[in-house]
């Protein structure tokens, strides 16, 4: 077993309409690392994420998750290892009640009833939403939906959490409690986002993607202080690193 839990090598992907979304990406992620993937819209973040849970299989290059190279045969094991949290929780919460939704994964794993029950309870209490268990998803607030979506993934006991814009559409308070929740997890985390302030709180490492290629990969602090690099990648420094408009200090 390698000590890299995620290893992507020279990954390329072109969509049927000839859009080259990913044009040769390589990186390695260690156990327990928390990595942000940032880039402008259309930079290739989503396509990359779709490879990490096996929705897309590599056209060229390789993706290794844990012990397995990603192929059609290993897709099932890989999905067990990688928990994917979607941008729109409405897509992830498709069952009639919160409980049903969290139980969906464990039931598919073929676990016995008591184990399913236990996993659901654990996942719900971990995200602090036990009290919502019998509620239908459309009656939840944005923050609650997000927490439940995370619970549905935790119930599968994944090693890696992959998140697409976890803080989008959240009010400031829900955003803050989400960040605190995520900070408490010891999973390997890969977060694709535009919320660079959150990245500063959660990720020690950042990968910048621009037009399907990696333009930078390194410690978050170093990358965010390189204003030129961020501008080239159609990004800007997180607010708290920008010059204060009132006192002109950092």
């Amino acid at each position: 077993m390698s000590h890299h839990i995620v290893e992507v090598q020279d990954l390329k992907h072109t969509y049927p309409d000839n859009t080259a979304a990913v044009r040769g990406i390589s990186f390695r992620i260690h156990h327990g690392e928390s990595v942000a993937v940032v880039g402008a819209n259309g930079a290739g973040k989503s396509t990359l994420l779709l490879h990490l849970n096996g929705y897309l299989t590599p056209q060229s290059g390789t993706v290794r998750i844990g012990d397995f190279p990603l192929t059609r045969e290993t897709v099932k094991d890989i999905r067990r290892t990688v928990g994917m949290i979607f941008q729109d929780p409405d897509d992830q919460l498709f069952m009639p009640t919160v409980y049903e939704d969290v139980a969906f994964g464990p039931l598919n794993l073929g676990l016995p009833a008591e184990e399913v029950e236990q996993r659901v309870q654990q996942a719900l209490s971990r995200t602090g939403v036990e009290h919502l268990s019998e509620r239908p998803p459309y009656k939840l607030s944005g923050g609650e939906k997000r927490a439940v979506a995370i619970a549905t993934v935790l119930a599968m006991s994944p090693d890696i959490l992959v998140m697409d814009e976890p803080t989008s559409n959240l009010d400031p308070r829900s955003r803050r409690s989400l960040i605190e929740l995520l900070a408490g997890f010891h999973h390997t985390k890969i977060i694709a986002t535009h919320d660079l302030d959150m990245v500063m709180d959660l990720c020690e490492r950042t990968i910048v993607i621009h037009e399907g290629r990696i333009t930078a990969d390194g410690p978050t602090a170093a990358i965010f202080s390189d204003d030129q690099l961020l501008r080239r990648s159609h990004l800007e420094q997180p607010l708290r690193m920008q010059v204060c408009p009132v006192c002109s200090k950092r």
Partner: peptide
């Protein structure tokens, strides 16, 4: 599109064509 995303979300949690309801 939403249908496709839901399908993906289901696949991510081990969906194999049968919906299991407690």
């Amino acid at each position: 599109d939403r249908g496709q995303r839901i399908h993906l979300a289901m696949l991510c949690r081990g969906f194999d064509g049968t919906i299991r309801i407690r």
